[in-house]
Design a protein around this nucleic acid. Structure first.
Lengths: 127, 127
DNA sequence: CGTGCTAATGATAATCGTTGTCAAAAGTAA
DNA sequence: TTACTTTTGACAACGATTATCATTAGCACG
């Protein structure tokens, strides 16, 4: 049985506050800076639980960190992210949304959600 | 100036021998088992060079390893993943690949790569 | 051929994200 | 309350990767 603790709530709330993907360490640092005394291991555990409950997406960044994002099934958007400076551009993806839903239903998968993000080098960092 | 060494050749040859993705450690182990005395750090460096030269693809596995594959542009694919049991279905995404590249170039981003994964509940887990 | 310069190697130490450990603290049902 | 059990958190441990640095060996060029 999963118990309700203020730590889990704090992690969930802070994750929902974030616009994009965050690392466990980053989220922990944010919480601590805000005056929330919470252990790093607890943040890792809370995020792992959120991800396995389907309340968060997770993916591996190219430098080996696990990144998390609050799972928004309603209105979510995608990002084009510069891997050098972190600059992001919001992108329209209606066609891809539809494609993702179709792939899922073609394979009889339900409760579909997806992680679609594009990375690259922005013009300024390309030189 | 990049010098030619038998170690780099050994890594490249062995990588081309492999059918799918391999980790640096795995490739090193294979080489050593075959009687090739080569250092682990050298394998890491050779693979990183191959990847940055565009001769190999690299990606992060879900357990945090960097995996390498000799570059074959026709075998890039994405996954439909059951978030309950982990069962995965490989999916073709040629149209989405093209879309991702277009989004990147429309915004003058170069060296594009993307994270596209679809999650859901497979038929068995849906009940 | 040497000879000199310097990139590459490899054993090992260091780093970094993450997970395991375990005693203490706190949620929950009675 | 009480009893039981999960969760927490400080810290140790772990595994993949990277840095260090003395040694080795490509690769011009004489």
């Amino acid at each position: 049985m999963r118990r309700k603790t203020w730590q889990r709530d704090a992690v969930r709330d802070e994750l929902e506050q974030q616009s994009g993907f965050v690392s466990a360490q980053g989220l922990h640092a944010t919480l601590v800076t805000q005056g929330t005394a919470i252990g790093l291991a607890t943040v890792y555990r809370a995020l792992a639980d959120l991800a396995s409950d389907g309340d968060a997406d997770s993916l591996q960044s190219d430098d080996g960190e696990t990144l998390y994002r609050a799972c928004r099934t309603d209105s979510h958007h995608h990002h084009l992210i510069c891997r050098q400076c972190g600059r992001t551009v919001e992108i329209e993806a209606a066609a891809v949304e539809k494609w993702a839903r179709k792939v899922a239903s073609d394979n009889s998968f339900t409760h579909e959600y997806h992680v679609i993000d594009i990375f690259g080098l922005c013009p300024d960092c390309a030189k």
